[in-house]
């Protein structure tokens, strides 16, 4: 279970990117985080695993206070939080297999990782996840030779290799076309269900959020302004989150099932 308490981030200048967010995500729940650009969605995700250092507040994962950890302990804690990125953030010049195995870096010593000597169990696991995300046989391809959707699948496999309890997903579909976006979202959801993983998915596309998430959270100017089931995301709620707009034109029945 993830618990954020009073999480606040102020950058050097300007107002707070996050202003006292309280949020609890139970195991196995997939939360979609929506909100306008600059609302602090990305900051929230990065504060959770301290890629961005929060100014105030605490992050607790399964009872452990992440914000209080020293660097070495923080690295151990990060292994429990897999992260998936908008621009995939694969190591472009390495093979698919090296990218997937890089999810184990927190478990493996430096020289073993430098010489690419990962334990047999890790390699087996990597082949398994590659197969699971639909990339069996791609292990020797270079990451920059893949299409966008394939790269995101590698990114997902890398995150799963960490054996995480929680997935932090930052705009997973923003660089993908609509059809691939749906496939990727469905894959993430399936994997969360299979492994009982919680996830925070920061997403621009409200229709996708509604379609896939268990719960939706709206962020505006660094504050939580909406928290509820996808069904309760009404036009009024959207106005609260994004401001006034002709929301009725939003294709509510945009289902491709």
């Amino acid at each position: 279970m993830l618990r954020l308490t009073g999480l606040t981030k102020r950058y050097d200048r300007g107002e707070a990117a996050l202003a006292g967010v309280d949020l609890t995500v139970p195991d196995g729940e997939v939360v979609a985080l929506i909100g306008p650009s600059g609302a602090g969605k990305s900051t929230l995700i990065r504060c959770t695993n301290r890629l961005v250092e929060p100014t105030e507040g605490t992050v607790e994962l399964d009872g452990q206070d992440i914000t209080a950890l020293a660097p070495a302990a923080l690295r151990l804690a990060r292994r429990r939080m897999g992260m998936i990125f908008q621009e995939f953030a694969l190591i472009e010049r390495l093979t698919v297999m090296e990218n997937v195995l890089s999810g184990r870096l927190g478990y493996v010593g430096f020289w073993a990782s430098w010489w690419r000597r990962f334990p047999p169990g890790d390699i087996q696991q990597a082949f398994h996840y590659l197969d699971r995300v639909g990339l069996a046989g791609f292990e020797n391809k270079r990451a920059d030779a893949l299409s966008g959707g394939q790269r995101q699948r590698v990114g997902i496999a890398r995150a799963l290799m960490q054996a995480p309890a929680l997935l932090l997903v930052d705009e997973p579909t923003a660089s993908l076309d609509p059809r691939t976006s749906r496939q990727i979202m469905r894959l993430i959801l399936e994997l969360c269900d299979e492994g009982g993983l919680a996830a925070i998915i920061n997403i621009h596309d409200v229709a996708l959020a509604r379609q896939f998430a268990h719960r939706i959270i709206g962020l505006r100017k660094g504050r939580l302004v909406f928290d509820g089931k996808p069904d309760s995301l009404t036009t009024d709620a959207l106005t609260t989150i994004y401001g006034a707009e002709a929301w009725a034109t939003l294709p509510d029945d945009d289902r491709d099932g």
């Binding site: 093979t95 297999m97 690419r116 169990g121 390699i123 087996q124 398994h128 292990e139 020797n140």
Partner: peptide
Amino acid sequence: MADYPTVWHKPP
């Protein structure tokens, strides 16, 4: 799971 290979070498 048991079917997957346990060794992999980076193509030289």
